[in-house]
Simulated scan of single mutants.
Amino acid sequence: MVRRWYAALGFNVLLGIPAVIPLWMLWYIAATWAHPAPEENDGLGVVVALFGPLVAACGFLWWAANRPLARRTHLSQSQYWLLSLLGMCLPTVALFCNTV
């Protein structure tokens, strides 16, 4: 069914639209870890406890959706997963660039 690289890219761009929220959460955790704001004195544990399960669930669903497609393409495994990761991040990068 899916033999071409652009079909896999399009599928992952569509998966990347709802993935904007978990990717933003990962960015927030990384930004809070490096330079916490003075008014955020609850620590990073609260942020990870709230955002962690959602990010992990979205990552698992992304992996589970791409695993069958990875075997059907003509790309190697490393090429497919890199293309999938870049395709999933494309809507988030476009949103970040649009807000600047």
Rank of each mutant, 00 (worst) to 15 (best):
residue 81 W to A: 00
residue 84 S to E: 03
residue 58 C to T: 14
residue 15 L to P: 05
residue 11 F to E: 09
residue 61 L to W: 09
residue 41 N to R: 15
residue 99 T to V: 14
residue 4 R to Q: 13
residue 85 L to G: 11
residue 67 R to K: 12
residue 29 I to G: 00
residue 43 G to F: 02
residue 80 Y to G: 01
residue 39 E to W: 14
residue 100 V to L: 15
residue 91 P to F: 00
residue 68 P to S: 01
residue 69 L to T: 04
residue 46 V to E: 13
residue 12 N to G: 04
residue 78 S to D: 13
residue 41 N to M: 14
residue 2 V to P: 13
residue 16 G to F: 00
residue 57 A to F: 07
residue 80 Y to D: 05
residue 33 W to F: 13
residue 54 L to V: 11
residue 79 Q to L: 11
residue 29 I to T: 04
residue 55 V to Q: 01
residue 76 S to P: 08
residue 79 Q to E: 11
residue 44 L to G: 07
residue 50 L to C: 13
residue 45 G to L: 00
residue 84 S to V: 03
residue 19 A to N: 06
residue 92 T to V: 08
residue 85 L to Y: 10
residue 22 P to T: 02
residue 66 N to E: 06
residue 5 W to I: 08
residue 49 A to M: 06
residue 27 W to Q: 14
residue 56 A to C: 04
residue 62 W to L: 11
residue 6 Y to T: 09
residue 86 L to Y: 05
residue 89 C to V: 10
residue 15 L to H: 07
residue 52 G to F: 01
residue 37 A to G: 12
residue 95 L to P: 07
residue 59 G to N: 01
residue 40 E to I: 15
residue 93 V to H: 06
residue 43 G to Q: 00
residue 23 L to E: 08
residue 69 L to N: 02
residue 89 C to Y: 10
residue 8 A to M: 04
residue 43 G to N: 01
residue 73 T to V: 07
residue 70 A to P: 06
residue 1 M to G: 09
residue 47 V to Y: 07
residue 38 P to I: 04
residue 51 F to S: 07
residue 82 L to I: 10
residue 50 L to T: 12
residue 74 H to W: 15
residue 92 T to C: 09
residue 5 W to K: 08
residue 63 W to T: 10
residue 95 L to K: 07
residue 33 W to S: 12
residue 57 A to D: 03
residue 87 G to R: 01
residue 46 V to D: 13
residue 20 V to Q: 08
residue 29 I to F: 05
residue 6 Y to S: 10
residue 63 W to M: 09
residue 17 I to P: 01
residue 8 A to Q: 05
residue 65 A to M: 09
residue 31 A to M: 09
residue 86 L to W: 06
residue 84 S to D: 04
residue 67 R to C: 11
residue 98 N to W: 15
residue 73 T to E: 06
residue 91 P to E: 01
residue 86 L to E: 05
residue 1 M to P: 10
residue 4 R to T: 12
residue 46 V to L: 14
residue 1 M to A: 12
residue 15 L to F: 04
residue 73 T to Q: 05
residue 50 L to E: 11
residue 25 M to Y: 09
residue 16 G to S: 00
residue 69 L to V: 04
residue 81 W to E: 01
residue 63 W to E: 10
residue 90 L to Y: 03
residue 46 V to N: 12
residue 2 V to H: 11
residue 88 M to I: 13
residue 62 W to H: 09
residue 36 P to V: 03
residue 48 V to A: 04
residue 13 V to K: 00
residue 46 V to T: 13
residue 55 V to H: 04
residue 42 D to Q: 14
residue 20 V to C: 08
residue 10 G to P: 01
residue 16 G to K: 02
residue 58 C to Y: 14
residue 36 P to W: 02
residue 33 W to E: 11
residue 64 A to I: 08
residue 53 P to Q: 00
residue 31 A to C: 10
